[in-house]
């Protein structure tokens, strides 16, 4: 179940916006669909990211998906431990399984993202 208070993308990333900083992660729906996750590639702190474009990849045995940034800005922190502890991603997608934190360059972009209820509705139409 998606969490209230977060913003969502159609490609199943979530963003938790606190002031000028957004924490980005992948929803439980996306993770269940990928199956056994085997590899995660994250950017480096200091990299610029753009809303709607890839900042990393997540791979299962038979699939690979881009991680698309919900918002634009500069990466301030990445979840260093995560690539070596992929079970955290699976067990705790909305907390310990966060991916990166970014400093927003355009906070107004958040209005284009889905709220929890809208995302839940959106999921009903996904197979």
């Amino acid at each position: 179940m998606a969490e209230q208070g977060l913003k969502y993308t159609e490609s199943h990333e979530w963003a938790k916006i606190e002031g000028n900083i957004a924490t980005i992660g992948l929803t439980d729906f996306a993770i269940e669909h990928l199956g056994d996750i085997v590899y995660l590639e994250l950017p480096e702190a200091g990299d610029d990211v753009t809303a709607g474009t890839a900042f990393g990849t997540v791979e299962s045995v038979k699939a690979a998906s881009d991680l698309n940034s919900p918002l634009s800005g500069k990466v301030t922190e990445i979840n260093e431990e995560l690539p070596d502890n992929l079970e955290t991603l699976q067990n705790s997608p909305f907390a310990g399984g966060w991916l990166v934190k970014i400093e927003l360059s355009d906070a107004s972009e958040a209005s284009k993202l889905m709220d929890c209820d809208v995302y839940e509705e959106y999921l009903k139409n996904q197979d």
Partner: peptide, 12 residues
């Protein structure tokens, strides 16, 4: 490491 390959990642 098959996710690097064309039969999975196609144009990427």
């Amino acid at each position: 490491l098959q996710t690097r390959e064309q039969h999975i990642r196609r144009e990427k």
